[in-house]
């Protein structure tokens, strides 16, 4: 089976790769591009651990084909911090102890960033519903929700 040539921008950098027709964007990110920050928890779009944005839209990379990334702009967890400066959400997750094992953390951060881009002042309920596609089994979500609400506040104050 011949492979498909894909041109895309990932975390701001031009990126080209070959992939098979049935290869998911998550497979490409992890296995071809060494961007292993996006995690595979289910491969069925149920856990959100592979959350990335595609042209600004929050998607599960396991539900997108690698070939579909052609001509799009992808942002992953690896693109969230600026150099050594963490994004306020990343810092808030650390400050609030919002991670235990940390496997879901990249997905939550990408999803939360997407939330705050649309709604800089979400309520607790809005936050919980936006993040309902991201599974965490360690924290019970309490500290995650607090971290997102706190980061939103900090981002509003410094905007």
């Amino acid at each position: 089976m011949s492979q498909i040539h894909v041109k895309t921008i990932i975390n701001g950098d031009a990126s080209e790769f070959l992939c098979a027709a049935d290869e998911t964007l998550l497979d490409v990110l992890r296995d071809r591009l060494d961007l292993t920050g996006s995690k595979e928890g289910c491969a069925s779009g149920d856990c959100g651990a592979c959350s990335v944005t595609m042209d600004g839209r929050l998607v599960c990379a396991c539900l997108v084909l690698g070939a579909e990334a052609d001509g799009t702009e992808i942002t992953t967890i690896e693109g969230m911090a600026t150099g050594e400066n963490l994004h306020p959400l990343q810092q808030a997750f650390l400050d609030h102890a919002a991670l235990q094992c940390g496997i879901c953390t990249p997905g939550f951060l990408v999803a939360a960033k997407s939330l705050l881009e649309r709604n800089p002042d979400p309520t607790e309920e809005e936050t919980r519903y936006w993040l309902a596609g991201n599974l965490c089994r360690c924290t019970g979500y309490d500290k995650i929700v607090r971290a997102v609400l706190d980061a939103a506040k900090i981002m509003r104050e410094t905007a």
Partner: peptide, 21 residues
Amino acid sequence: TRPLRPDGIDKVTGRARYGAD
């Protein structure tokens, strides 16, 4: 006290290496 976790930055940046990574 409640210091920041030393494995935290790796885990919020996607650098931490899990089984399949």
